[in-house]
Design a protein around this nucleic acid. Structure first.
Lengths: 122, 122
DNA sequence: ATAACAGTTGAGCAACTATTCAACTGTTAT
DNA sequence: ATAACAGTTGAATAGTTGCTCAACTGTTAT
């Protein structure tokens, strides 16, 4: 009845635009990496940890205190941040101090904060 | 030696650092809004839609073609982007054209792309 | 009026994820 | 050696989320 259509046909298709956009877009892998990065940023616990580390290196226990969360929960999230190479660890005795591995992140967050705070009106 | 501090117990507590960081961190609500924004960015379908819209406004059908996805799936994600005020819609006949509502986003993405592409070595 | 199409929407399902819990490692002090 | 603590880890659970499917709205053309 309706459709053995696989593609193309008579649906609205502005092919020139599709082609143009396809050519100018970043590669699939870059886009996915970007999405992965944002996914790591997209959890309020990790966001809090990162913004805390903007100010000072901290040990797991203190981050837990600061955010009123268990050491385990913090440790799990620090693991995610470590795997994404966003933070690095320094061991000192029993304690492990975490800090940003890159201030690139700080800049990205600054822009995001500006955005949500609404320095741009429209 | 560590006992002047009223804070809780005997766990490792660098109270000065915790206080300092607490005072300098953005407010809870700002941090959560930032996390929400990043959560929206943190899906490859939405990331693809946004980077496509960086180049040109597009209708739902064309975005579906470009990404080889159903109109329904695209529409669902556009709804999320609309609710976050990241894209705006313009209706023209049967078609609905979407575009960025703000080039702030473009700047944030540019930095994220730079980050994942690794313009910063470590 | 009817058909065809662009797009939206809600329900449902499958996959994912953040936290808790409990058990563990390693370091420091007694 | 033993105890206490900082931190890590794996499993389990509860909540979230992206896509599909089917039904729907609204517009255009016949």
């Amino acid at each position: 009845m309706l459709s053995e259509i696989e593609v193309c046909e008579k649906e609205c298709t502005h092919s020139e635009i599709i082609e143009k956009v396809k050519n100018e877009m970043p590669s699939e892998s870059v886009i996915c990496d970007v999405a992965e990065l944002f996914k790591v940023f997209g959890d309020s616990t990790r966001t809090k940890i990162l913004t805390a580390l903007f100010e000072s290196e901290m040990c797991v226990c203190d981050i837990g205190k600061l955010l009123s969360m268990s050491k385990s929960a913090i440790s799990h999230q620090l693991r995610v941040l470590r795997q994404s190479k966003l933070v690095k660890a320094r061991k000192s005795g029993k304690e492990v101090f975490y800090s940003l591995s890159d201030n690139h992140v700080k800049t990205i967050f600054k822009m995001a904060i500006d955005h949500v705070v609404g320095n741009d009106c429209d």
